[in-house]
Amino acid sequence: MASMDVSEPPPTPRIDVRGLTIAYDGIPAVVNVDLQLQAGSICGLVGMNGAGKSTLFKALTGFVAPSRGQLRLDGLPVAEAQRRQLVAYVPQSDQVDWQFPIRVWDVVMMGRYGRMNLLRWPSRHDCQLVRQALERVDLVDLRDRQIGALSGGQRKRAFLARALAQQAGVLLLDEPFTGVDIRTERLIIELLLEQRNQGATVLIATHDLDAIPSFCDRVVLINRTVLAYGETAAVFTQDNLLRTFGAAPTASA
């Protein structure tokens, strides 16, 4: 079994989770989770619904506090890392109000807010980065559309552009492949590889097991605690998946 990787004496890990337990009303959602991720890597987070993926994301975005254990990003507490714009979060599609009266451009600009003054007046530099991010995800022509007027794949790309505009070192993506076409899926993967090569750390929760070996350097399998964690080839085995899902998963998600 590949559990924690101790082969390389690591510098400060980008994402450093130690003995993390989170309980809601005394009922533990995740127990004793350990996870260290270095700069320049992509890690797939795999588990059944209710296995604690969302809880882990909530902890990494500061929405729930650890009941026990600790959680550091670039060696900093989560709140401090967030203040320094180290974390970009791409939410699940069902967490967004698509009727909201806001344009694609404004959504992406929100990625820059943390670096602006209190009134959030965008500088020329901010506008440039937003434009570049939109170009990268191929949405420049749709920048004045209301966010809900986009297709599923385009919506996902808009939120990805927001994360790019933020220029954060840690990218957290919650189910980015749900409801997107194959073209968008390829574009997202290509983008994540690009970000990794520039030194970003990517944690991606996904049900798309087919895609994982093609771009994830590492995989963490969880079911309320870490069942296996390590390099994809070592961890992503039929046996481990069987333990994660309780039965052989149908490979196509």
Partner: peptide
């Protein structure tokens, strides 16, 4: 931003 996406608001340290 707080109304539209509180998770993002928090993740950029607002």
């Amino acid at each position: 931003l707080f109304c539209f996406d509180p998770a993002h608001a928090r993740s950029i340290g607002l």
